[in-house]
């Protein structure tokens, strides 16, 4: 759906040139919520802005929809393209002098007068984002969460297929973050959207992202589905980010001296309720220490265990676990 190939972007600054994106290649699947995470300055915003061409790449191509390279589109086609790729912003970017209703209608008002059908659509969107009764309020009468809801409704008014979100919750408090993310998830399902979320906050990724791309210093560190990112992080940057939400298994491992008999388990929700470990312990008469256990965003169980017993018993224990549908990784 979105195919970035060999994207590079250099900014000229007073200190010289700065490579914000270095040969980035990335595919984003249709109908997924794809997170892009990395420390500040990693190039995340630049990358997401290349997708809707608010920023033009120096080299490489951005293929979206039927277009092989959206950079080649002329002004008029770029405008049409941007109606299909909407955006929400960290600071909401609402117009202070316009009401909620007018703000949501803005993408239409910019092109033509509001028709009866547009007014109906705006009303529906106000209901969808839960802002009934606020139609005639002005942005500075709203809370941060409500402002972002206006931003979301405004982004949906052009009936886009892709929703780009640049740090959509970074200006919000923890409680509000959850509700806004829930809303994004809901509209994605309802409207079959492809959602790209840029964030520096691993909680956001954990909460709603199915696919994750980790960026650092203008490069992609790794890109995978959320379970693999958590179960099997490839880079210290990823581990560091996982550590911020207590999901970095390596933290626990490094504290232990012997790693010989330590394993990471990943298993389905159905297994969580089966008291798996105690059964295996009984059958194979081994001793199992659970060093760490958590549940991933996709409701999978993840566990770090240490098995004590002789080698053949350990081996049969692992076989048993694998047979029961558990993914086992030796540390």
């Amino acid at each position: 759906m979105i195919t970035l190939t060999d994207i590079s972007k250099t900014f000229k600054t007073k200190q010289g040139t700065f490579n914000a994106l270095k040969n980035i290649s990335l595919s984003i699947e249709e109908n997924t919520i794809h997170g892009i995470i990395g420390p500040s300055g990693a190039g995340k915003s630049t990358l997401i802005r290349v997708i809707n061409q608010l920023e033009k790449q120096d080299t490489g191509t951005v293929g979206v929809f039927e277009y092989t390279d959206v950079k080649k589109l002329n002004k008029e086609s770029t405008r049409m393209y941007r109606k299909r790729v909407s955006m929400i912003f960290q600071n909401f970017n609402l117009l202070e002098q316009k009401t909620v209703f007018q703000n949501i209608g803005l993408p239409i008002i910019l092109h033509q007068r509001l028709k009866e059908t547009d007014i109906t659509l705006i009303r529906e969107l106000i209901t969808l984002v839960g802002l009934n009764g606020y139609e005639n309020s002005y942005p500075n009468e709203l809370s941060g969460g409500q402002k972002q809801r206006v931003g979301i409704a405004r982004a949906l008014v052009s009936k886009p297929e892709i929703l780009l979100c640049d740090e959509p919750t970074s200006a919000l408090d923890t409680q509000t973050i959850k509700t806004v993310l829930e809303l994004i998830k809901t509209i994605k399902e309802k409207l079959n959207l492809t959602v790209v979320i840029v964030t520096h906050d691993m909680n956001v990724i954990k909460e709603i992202c199915e696919e994750v791309t980790v960026m650092n210093e203008g490069e992609i560190v790794e890109s995978d589905n959320i379970d693999n990112i958590i179960f099997n992080p490839q880079s210290p940057v990823t581990s560091g980010l996982l550590g911020t939400i207590g999901l970095d298994i390596k933290q626990f491992i490094s504290k232990k001296v012997t790693k010989e008999n330590m394993f990471v388990l990943l298993f389905d929700k159905s297994i969580i309720n089966q008291s798996l470990i105690s059964r295996v312990v009984q059958i194979h008469s081994v001793n199992i220490n659970i060093l760490y256990a958590n549940i991933t965003p996709n409701n999978k169980g993840i566990m770090l265990i240490e098995i004590n017993g002789n080698q053949s018993k350990i081996q049969s224990t692992i076989k048993e676990l694998i047979n029961r549908g558990v993914e086992v990784k030796h540390v």
Partner: peptide, 26 residues
């Protein structure tokens, strides 16, 4: 940020000035 907003929603420069920036800066 007003330019960014207008461009993200496919507005021409003329519309960005007349429909967004001037009303917001009145």
């Amino acid at each position: 940020y007003l330019i960014e907003t207008g461009q993200a929603f496919g507005a021409s420069n003329y519309k960005i000035i007349t429909k967004i920036i001037i009303p917001e800066s009145l």
